[in-house]
C-alpha cells in the first residue's frame, strides 16, 4: 500500500480483518474525503482526509476534554510517546513520514496525522494504530474510567463492581 493515496484501500483492509464495521464514505469532494465507521465501544468514528493540507484526522475523537485537564495532558503525552524512541520500532510512528498529535478545538480532542512525505497509506495505518493503542494501551491504564463512561459511551452495566 506504500505510496498510494487511496486511503479507502486501507480502510477496506481493516474492515475485512474485522477491525472496522459499517464503513461508509459520507463525502468525496475534490481533494477531501470523509469516512465514518463503527469501532471501539461501538462508537462512530469520523475520519476526514484533506489531501491539500496533507492531513488525516479523527474529529471529535475525544469530546468534553478541558484544555487544562489531566486527561488532555495524559492523552497528548501518550500520543507523543507513539513517536518516541522508547516505543518499539515496529510500533513507532516515524515522524519523518507522519506526525501524530492531539488537537484541541472547543473542548474536543481530534487525533491528527500530518503527512510529511506524501504517503497517505502509512499515515492512515498509523493513525488507526494510534487510536487503537489509545483504547488498548492508554485508557485501561489511565485514571479516566469515569470519562470513558460519561463521554465515550463505555457501558457501565456491562460489568458490576463488587
Amino acid at each position: 500500500m506504500t505510496g498510494s493515496t487511496d486511503i479507502h484501500a486501507v480502510l477496506d483492509f481493516y474492515a475485512k480483518r474485522g477491525l472496522l464495521r459499517n464503513v461508509r464514505t459520507t463525502l468525496s469532494e475534490g481533494r477531501a474525503t470523509r469516512v465514518q465507521f463503527t469501532w471501539h465501544y461501538d462508537r462512530t468514528f469520523d475520519l476526514r482526509v484533506d489531501y491539500e493540507a496533507s492531513r488525516l484526522s479523527f474529529t471529535d475523537a475525544f469530546p468534553n476534554v478541558p484544555a487544562a485537564s489531566a486527561l488532555y495532558r495524559d492523552l497528548t503525552g501518550f500520543i507523543d510517546g507513539m513517536m518516541s524512541d522508547s516505543m518499539p520500532i515496529h510500533r513507532r510512528v516515524d515522524r519523518r513520514k507522519t506526525i501524530v498529535h492531539g488537537e484541541l478545538i472547543d473542548a474536543n480532542v481530534a487525533i491528527v496525522a500530518d503527512v510529511v512525505d506524501g504517503d497517505f497509506d502509512y499515515a492512515a495505518r498509523k493513525l488507526i494504530q494510534v487510536v487503537n493503542e489509545i483504547y488498548f494501551g492508554f485508557l485501561p491504564n489511565s485514571a479516566h474510567y469515569d470519562y470513558q463512561v460519561q463521554s465515550l459511551g463505555l457501558e457501565p452495566n456491562a460489568i458490576t463492581f463488587a
Binding site: L139, P140, N141, A143, Y145, D146, F161
Partner: peptide, 15 residues
Amino acid sequence: FSSASLYPPGVNIIQ
C-alpha cells in the same frame, strides 16, 4: 479508593 478523583487512579476495566 474506587474514586479516580479522590484516590487516583481508581477503578478501570482490564481487557
